Amino acid sequence: MNINVGGVDRGLRIVAGAVLILLAATGTVGWWGWLGLIALITGLVRFCPLYSLFGISSCKTRGL
Rank of each mutant, 00 (worst) to 15 (best):
50 L>F: 04
7 G>I: 09
5 V>A: 10
42 T>F: 08
21 I>L: 11
39 A>H: 01
18 A>T: 02
26 T>W: 14
11 G>T: 12
14 I>R: 07
12 L>V: 14
63 G>R: 15
42 T>S: 12
34 W>H: 09
62 R>S: 14
16 A>I: 10
45 V>S: 11
40 L>F: 08
21 I>H: 00
10 R>I: 02
4 N>G: 06
62 R>K: 05
58 S>N: 06
14 I>K: 09
26 T>M: 10
41 I>R: 03
15 V>Y: 06
33 G>W: 01
5 V>D: 01
12 L>I: 12
51 Y>K: 09
46 R>F: 03
48 C>D: 14
60 K>G: 06
48 C>K: 02
26 T>Y: 08
55 G>H: 14
63 G>T: 12
48 C>S: 03
44 L>T: 15
2 N>D: 05
46 R>C: 06
60 K>F: 13
9 D>S: 11
40 L>N: 02
11 G>N: 05
52 S>R: 04
44 L>S: 05
33 G>D: 01
23 L>V: 00
52 S>F: 05
40 L>H: 02
19 V>G: 06
1 M>G: 12
9 D>T: 15
16 A>D: 05
23 L>N: 00
9 D>P: 07
17 G>Q: 00
47 F>D: 11
54 F>W: 12
39 A>Y: 01
34 W>C: 05
20 L>W: 08
5 V>W: 03
56 I>S: 12
13 R>K: 10
48 C>P: 04
24 A>Y: 00
31 W>I: 15
24 A>G: 03
24 A>P: 00
25 A>T: 09
6 G>M: 03
14 I>T: 11
43 G>P: 01
58 S>K: 12
3 I>Y: 08
38 I>W: 04
54 F>C: 03
56 I>R: 13
13 R>Q: 04
30 G>H: 11
33 G>C: 03
31 W>T: 09
34 W>Q: 03
21 I>M: 07
12 L>R: 11
35 L>A: 13
22 L>I: 05
24 A>R: 03
6 G>R: 04
57 S>D: 08
6 G>W: 08
